[in-house]
Design a binder for these strands. Sequence first.
DNA 1: TTAGGGTTAGCC
DNA 2: GGCTAACCCTAA
Length: 723
Amino acid sequence: MSASASKVSSLSDEQIINRWGFDYYVFKALSAFRDADYTAFTHFTSIIENLVVRPVDGHSDMIVKLRCMQFLSRINNGDKLDLTFEEPKTPLESAVSVLESICRDMSVPPREQERVKQAIIETLIMVCLRSGEFTRAEEVLLRHFSDAEDSAGKKKLFESLIRRRRSSHSVLQLSSYADFKQDMLDFIERLYRVPEPFLLQMLKRSGHPGVSSEPVTSSSQDRQKTSAAAEHHGSVCACLSLHSLRQVYGVLSERYGVSVSFTQLQQELEEEQEQEESPELHLALSETPREQPEPPYAGMTISRLVQEDDSQLSTAEEEETQISSPHSECSPAQICTPARHTQKHNRIILSSDVEPEDHATSPPSSRRSSRHKQQQKSDHSESKCVMVEDDGGSSAQVCSPARPSSSSSSPAVRRSARDTQRQSRIVLSSDVEPEDHATSPPSSRRSSRHKQQQKSVHSESKCVMVEDDGGSSAQVCSPARPSSSSSSPAVRRSARDTQRQSRIVLSSDVEPEDHATSPPSSRRSSRHKQQQKSDHSAGESALVSSPAHPSSPASVRRSDRDTQNQSSESECVMEVEDGGSCVQHSTPARPSATDTQRHNRSVTVSSESEDHKSSPATQTPRRRSSPSSGGAHKRRRARWQDVSGTHENWSDEESLFSATSGRSSKKYSRKMWTVQESEWLKEGVRRFGAGHWEKIRSSFPFTGRTAVNLKDRWRTMLKLRLV
DNA sequence: TTAGGGTTAGCC
DNA sequence: GGCTAACCCTAA
């Protein structure tokens, strides 16, 4: 059978079932959001978040769904300024980032994109104003607010309110955050109609009384979703006419040199069917009415062809993406659990704490859009296959079996301290360090760099590739791609007030062993601001380029702010690399250090055995056996400075330095290599060989890295004998 | 696009 | 100031 078939069979039951569960919970989450049951929404997203760290069949629209979940999660928490998904961004700022990724991947009309973005920004400003966060409101206003003429009035109003420090105004009272949420949901639903999940379909067909024939959601689009879902999960759905089948068959048979005519095949199959009617086929095909007695076997035939087709695609891409690699199993997505400081948010924290140990998520890498069309066809057919196979007991996922979807975002939960005063955060987690290997960026020595890295991580997470709505899976999951957390949405809890800090502590202690993640920290220097922008854009561009980036690893962090509090927040970021093998990295928590360095403890667990003597301590993975302990360790901790601090604090600096000219008209900021990145590089070299830097770069969710950077890093690694 | 040498940034 | 990883520049 085709290679794809073998891939299909290689899917584990867990992958398949997790996929079904994933689809189901996404569907439920959307329903909950639509019903304004945001608590349920949060619960569902938590489930999803945990689910995607397990091996999941990265099929088709998984990334799209993850993006939607990420977006809505941020929207849902947008009025909570003390939460962050990506430090130092507020949830709504993160929503804008996700929006940009969505728009890039799904071709959203520019006007619509702008409208939604503007709505988010306006809402964010209003939220800031209501909360008395005038500095932040001003920052958002200056940075993001549209300069369009039609927005001039609002801009002036906001400026006025900020200037006068007014947190109450009729305009602020008028807008309802709930309405805003629903507006954002409408946007998502217009953009992507979530098909009815396979599990629900099955439940309906089983005659379960509690399930109506209608989709759970009340949306008017549900019907469409249902049919779409059917396609996805295998029911042929009669949407295929005999004519179209014939056409497809014609094309495929020509392509693959199948000599049997469609008519012959049809007759054969009819005969077969007469002899044994497979219930499964009925199941698959009976749902939709057919004008013509569409041959039940049609699905089978097509699926077979499709598989071949798909397999070709896969094989062709395989080399590049190595979908089949063990890693690729799942794509994590980070969805959504923001971290917060306040006690009331404990539940959110919980999700992160409870995090499973192994998160292996394989971030599927995404495939490139060019494949989409082909993919769509294949997906379509695949769905048919699925049904048949399901019945047969074999794996139901025909789709891109080999393709793991890269979920991009692994969930990262962080607590960040946002103190306006830039309190330093101390990561206590180090002591507690789990055995799990965190992959902390080996190279990073300097604490200040971490923040930058963190950002980069975020961007990576964004890398989820969404191919197209068609559900064709665009994910090219390169096996090797771990999901970078970032995209994974990292949720953090940022402690803004010192008072709140104590609360934060709660979750951190419980921290699971696993994941180490090392969020890179960025430097504090004035460069940072520049960097932020550049990173941001870089990350996004990366998304575009590697849309499929599965999101990578989910990263959960806990960070402590200050040593004094030692409430010990440990920042833990989980990065799931592959489905199967997930590498968890713990990054040092974001250190926040005031200018005076505070002792930070960073826990970095590195999966690598490499000795990073020379590597920077920051993310230096702690080797358990490594000599570095005691004094060295302390020094490392001391290096962690909180760069993440309040972004607003940097703004001035940023403006000061933005025009700074460095060597090439701008100063570059050093971005230390994370363990994760180094792993990707090593994997890339293993796969493609040294010298194919561009190929490697495009095959992994690197963000802010050029081929030259890769080359340089490889050179450094060789020099350090890290490889 | 890559290779290799030079430069810069940041820590000690 | 030394050291070094990351970054830049440029020729091929």
